[in-house]
Nucleic acid binder design. Sequence first.
DNA 1: CTGAAAGCGCTTACAG
DNA 2: CTGAAAGCGCTTACAG
Lengths: 332, 332
Amino acid sequence: MGKVRQADIARVAGVSQATVSVVLGGNRTGVRLSERTRLRVLEAAERLGYLPDPVSSRLASAGNNLLGVYTFTPAFPDIADAYFPILAGIEAEAAALGKDLIMFTASSAAPDRIRRTRLADGCLFLGRHVPVDAIADLLAAGFPIVHIGRRTELGGRIPHVGADYVSASAEVITRLARAGHTRVRYLREPDDAPSSDDRERGVRAAAADAGMAVAVTRTSGPDLDATAIARWLDDGVTALVVEETDTGAVFEATWRALGEAGVSVPGDVSLAVLGRPPAGTAGPVISGFEVPRRALGRAAVRLLASLVEPGTGEPSPHRLLTCPPVAGETIA
Amino acid sequence: MGKVRQADIARVAGVSQATVSVVLGGNRTGVRLSERTRLRVLEAAERLGYLPDPVSSRLASAGNNLLGVYTFTPAFPDIADAYFPILAGIEAEAAALGKDLIMFTASSAAPDRIRRTRLADGCLFLGRHVPVDAIADLLAAGFPIVHIGRRTELGGRIPHVGADYVSASAEVITRLARAGHTRVRYLREPDDAPSSDDRERGVRAAAADAGMAVAVTRTSGPDLDATAIARWLDDGVTALVVEETDTGAVFEATWRALGEAGVSVPGDVSLAVLGRPPAGTAGPVISGFEVPRRALGRAAVRLLASLVEPGTGEPSPHRLLTCPPVAGETIA
DNA sequence: CTGAAAGCGCTTACAG
DNA sequence: CTGAAAGCGCTTACAG
């Protein structure tokens, strides 16, 4: 009882293999078929326990209803908190569209693995940085891709669905300005990625508008201690603005340093996070904004699906979703 | 700049398409190749930007390094708490083995969708119940599958990696017996699934050994109220044993009813859960056991991988992992 | 109105 | 020691 192929059905039903294909494919080309033939084929297929081979169908044209998901870091163990809602959104929308998902486990961002994404009809990419060359190859080959998070590489030709960090970050600064702050310390990731750069752009623009002085510290956390805090306060800083990062390390280091320095929030200094603090952070609700991760996942799947099956009006290959503000209790 | 095929490389390099395949495939058959030819092919492939088509390779023999994951309920939105560690384990092990994952989103357990799993080299199944017919087809076709959770269907022919609920549940009862309890109320899921039945078997066996009276209530939660609690206590019950369920609903209902009844734990009544309470449950550490979900995920992937690539000694197609006891504070 | 040919892009057994 | 044939299981344009 090995695999049953269309050819086996054809033999039993006394027709050609191609006819079997037409019948089982639901006759989408509108071929004339005698009802008798159709029934014989269907019955034989049922009796033999035919299981179509999706790989063959995919090769012989036609998609396979598979969308790839490529994360540049293991999605689950490490930064699960940040990725989980995105994956949840991706899965929900994929299920709604009747698509299955291929998760490409990216132990490394090796080009070889990225090329494997072509097994699917299209692929979602997810990560702080993007391997430009491999993506360029995919793009050049006409393979549909969507990056989750804004991308500026390749002259902005990478389709993406991102969060509008510029506006959301500007809004946080404006709130601070309205509360009377004129001197702010801004802590951001040391490396350049659109998600960090966008925040900085929003911060600078709003600060300039408000006549606020913003000094930037690039840090990944370890150097943040009570001494640093004390120095900033001595300099006349009245508010700290911290970028939300994948691991939450910068916020955690800041929060700890604040505690060690015996500085009260928002009594002695105001605090805002450009995003949300890591899950499970105790204490007051930190002011900032929500990143609509679930919606990002859903929107990305929708965009990718429309790229895979063109027709119903080409959507913009670039979308930015709004980040709802979180008032919080740490701006005073 | 359309897709570049091996045939294109062959034309440029002045060799046959098959030779290109041999060269690019790393010459695994040990064919004699002039170094000059090899280099010419490699160079042409590089220059043209060749991207191998994984679908074709898969069809022309050879696996595709893809393992399927089929959950009978949407994995992410709903019962994520229970599935998340399993998926984390699956992903970690798959990454370690260099395999990618296809997540089949099971909006319905429709046989069609299950058949699609054959796109992968093998598939993991995950769910309280299993669609026996579709699984039987897969098994008959020689398609490698592994179920996460013990399965008894099809005469026990379904390969699986499960948790040893029988022993773990028995151990909980033994603990209760040692603490002097002789009359216990046991709350379990209303439907029959191996994970529930195994627990009950362990409970009954250990209770019989200890001369303990166990009364069983099948419930999904809603009927659990202060009245029920009071009735049981009146009956002389001194301990409650609650099954861990996917949603945690039974435990939550019990915990609430206990509160409403003003019954203190473990002062007035002891409490154990056959597993762990839902995440985020406040109060004392509930006695019970840990389900090694991450390890289940990893072990299932390893078993599936060995089924896909036989050779290195056939492993047992049935494995049960031990559930470490959690002493907790609610048995007295 | 129906059925047989060609081809999707590869791999691997097989002639030369 | 190398290169061309056959074939994986399908779909869809095309002859009859």
